[in-house]
Amino acid sequence: MTKKKQVRNKGLLPQLEKEGTLDKEIVLSTREKLGVPVGSRLFSHHTLASYRKLSFYHPFDLPQDSLDIILSATYNHSIESFPDKVDVNLQPDTVGCETWRKLRNTLDKTPPASIPMGHTMRRGGITERRSPFSVKLMNSGVHSSQTNPGYSRQPAGGAIFFY
């Protein structure tokens, strides 16, 4: 699964084709952002809220009442034993799941699939083989002896023997 990258929308109109439809075309005084008078640029630039408030914009899935909001929440009463009061109204778009509504004026861009060395053959296998003798223990004390792998210190005489 490829991760989508969110890039800022630098256009004058947000792209809300997944959310709803427009009955008629939006009249813009300019299509440019630079080199035009400030008033025409402000008149032509729409935010997400101003685009949604247009009289000829009709959203697809708009919740009608509080029951619709609760039914679309991420809360599942069969999994959670002691939920918070907020969990019943917590929506998936605030958690980070992709939904029908956009919260930011961004464009989703999928990165191109990289083909290594110009062909689609994939290499697999183990990239690194770590030795179990080079792992330091988590609970080792400060007075433990650090010896080379394969050597051990005998407790009686202190001499080093190779096994």
Rank of each mutant, 00 (worst) to 15 (best):
E128I: 11
S44H: 08
I115N: 04
L54K: 12
S29F: 09
H46G: 02
A73N: 15
S55Y: 03
E19K: 06
I26G: 05
L42V: 10
L48W: 00
V7I: 13
S66H: 05
I26W: 09
I79M: 05
Q154M: 10
L103V: 11
S131V: 03
L16Y: 06
S55Q: 05
G20A: 00
R129H: 12
V38S: 12
P92K: 13
Y57F: 15
P155N: 01
Y75N: 10
V135A: 03
G11H: 07
Q91G: 04
V86Q: 08
P92G: 08
P112N: 06
Q64H: 04
R122Y: 12
T147C: 12
Q91D: 10
S134E: 11
K136W: 08
A156Q: 11
M121C: 09
L48K: 01
R8F: 06
P59D: 06
E98Y: 04
H58I: 09
L137V: 01
F133S: 06
G150D: 06
W100E: 14
F60A: 05
R52W: 07
K136M: 12
R129W: 12
L54I: 09
R104F: 14
P59N: 03
G118E: 12
S78V: 07
P63H: 01
N148G: 06
L48I: 14
I115D: 09
Q91L: 15
Y57G: 00
H45S: 13
V135S: 05
T2A: 04
R52K: 11
T30D: 10
T127R: 15
G124K: 13
Y163L: 14
K24V: 02
S140A: 13
L67S: 09
F82K: 04
K3S: 02
S114Q: 05
I115Q: 08
N76L: 10
E32T: 02
K109T: 02
G35Q: 10
